[in-house]
Amino acid sequence: MEKRNLTCIRCPLGCSLVVTIDGDNIDVTGNTCKRGYDYGVKEVTNPTRVVTTTVPVSDGVDLRVSCKTSGDVPKDKMIDVIKDLTEVSINAPVAIGDVIKANVANTGIDIVATKNVSKKKSNLKATEVPKHEYKKAI
């Protein structure tokens, strides 16, 4: 029998969970809701996370677009997800929910945009350099 102390992260309450693993029997105590129970079980059997990062945008009003995995990925795949995005970029416009990379790191989960990035208007107005009455330094 194995006991693991976890902090539930399903909501800000942060309940202290004790998960008891006895073969196939898993028991969770310390939770105050069903979500906490599920979290406890999942965390010891198949821990998963949502991964968030950014990728470069071409031609957009922003340099980067934020993105996330459209669902949970296994905890031990998190860095693989990031690595699979090293060469990925996207053209503006981008809308929230747009798929940036399908089946990222073979997880079956997509990377989707979490921000709208519109296309850059031709040329951003160049701010004028103040002119001075000085002789140029040589």
Partner: peptide, 8 residues
């Protein structure tokens, strides 16, 4: 901009 483009 002024600080960048003036002498020195």
């Amino acid at each position: 901009l002024d600080a960048i483009h003036r002498p020195l």
